[in-house]
Amino acid sequence: MLFKDLRKGLAVTIGYLFRRPVTVQYPDEKLIPPVRSRWRHYLGVFPDGKIRCIDCGLCERVCPPKVIKIIPVINEDGTKSAGKYEIDLGRCMYCGFCVEVCPELAILMSSEDYEFANYDRDKLVYQKESLLKGRNKDNE
């Protein structure tokens, strides 16, 4: 019959017209990110609440855009830990090298916190206090 190509195309689109749309209306409905996805960084702590970081400086050194800054403190027992820990997430490229290189599992990437967009660049510089919150389902 005539116009076979046109009729085939029209049949496809009319079929899709009655299919469910795949759109997710983002702020109203949210997808659950995969378990192994890696988003914002967070600092690991021991069960007693002590920070795991020993200030070896490897993450500072391996970070390609150099966004990690640590100021150490010396504890009473002579060990070192991070007094200040700062990541500029506005410049971070999320390569995950810091997580990979860390010998103490002190810096990790959250598997669920992906909404940290901000209108102010300065607010993207995360300090130790806000970095302590976070969890990774894959590590649990």
Binding site: I14, R19, T23
Partner: peptide, 13 residues
């Protein structure tokens, strides 16, 4: 709206 649904989108909502 119709074009959106043909492309499995929602269109103005």
């Amino acid at each position: 709206k119709v074009i959106g649904h043909m492309q499995q989108r929602i269109g103005p909502k």
